[in-house]
Design a binder for these strands. Structure first.
Lengths: 153, 153
DNA sequence: TATTGTTATACTCTATAACTATA
DNA sequence: TATAGTTATAGAGTATAACAATA
């Protein structure tokens, strides 16, 4: 039997023209490009973001880190567990408020955070390079207007 | 104790400037706008896409529908189960190939597919309206270039 | 041997409820 | 009473492995 690849493609109607689809493709491609860089350093995206924020905000409590990353505090626990187990982050219990813990990078964590920032810079440069002069600026502007339009009403 | 909302926001470094974040915001906003329209008609996004494709490709087998939607065939089963249970789709076993089933919309399914296409049209018009003249065209072009750049190498 | 449809399963991300110990 | 951290759990989306019936 001939493989179905040789059959005519189904008519997808309006679906291929949806702006949503172009956004999804762009985001997936961009995310995977960055994901490959993160994976080369052995971290998941949420771990990378946590390390980068902690590198610039030593002693931040988990509740504020979660808010900064747009995560539920409850879902941050496993992320911090993994980072602490690998010796990248320390939870230091505070004396003045014994409920809270100050999240601090170890030396290894700080080194890794620096490498992650370099990867982000290279990632953004690669994307911007494909968009031509002012492309990045124009894209960001259009995306902002799109976000506003979609949320309107 | 004063709520943490009054504390200075943490320094997020390069994270807020990531093009990925702008893409994510735009996609989330667009998807949720469309999701609200789908929910008003009682369907999930994958169900809506399946109905719209089947409306234009009567008798399509599941293996080709899955490929058209970019889904794994295994994950399409539950979607089709739900649509069939609600009397929107029928699996008609073929005589010439008794492994396969022709997926056909019922009358109710075809009516719903038409309504879904109208919602998609309204959705796209709302997004395009927020982007100004040629905005949609320019955004699609930039997203295409971004996708190529991210996938390069 | 390959293909269609299917079940079972697992992983990621996200979300809610409820507990503990502190304040 | 409210907050910080945690556990348990559940949903949606997506992934692989393996099976039965059929080609």
């Amino acid at each position: 039997m001939i493989a179905s690849g040789s059959l005519p493609a189904p008519d997808l109607g309006p679906l291929p023209d949806l702006l949503d689809l172009a956004l999804k493709r762009g985001l997936r491609a961009a995310e995977q490009e960055l994901l490959r860089r993160y994976e080369a350093l052995g971290v998941r995206p949420a771990e990378a973001s946590a390390l980068i924020v902690l590198a610039r905000n030593e002693g931040l409590p988990a509740v504020r880190l979660a808010a900064a990353l747009g995560m539920k505090q409850t879902n941050l626990v496993a992320v911090l567990d993994g980072l602490e187990r690998r010796g990248l982050v320390e939870r230091r219990r505070l004396e003045r408020d014994r409920r809270a813990a100050a999240l601090c990078l170890t030396e290894a964590g700080a080194t890794l955070a620096g490498r992650l920032e370099a990867e982000i810079e290279a990632h953004e440069a690669k994307l911007a390079g494909g968009l031509g002069p002012d492309g990045r600026y124009r894209l960001a502007g259009l995306l902002h207007r799109l976000t506003e339009a979609a949320a309107a009403e």
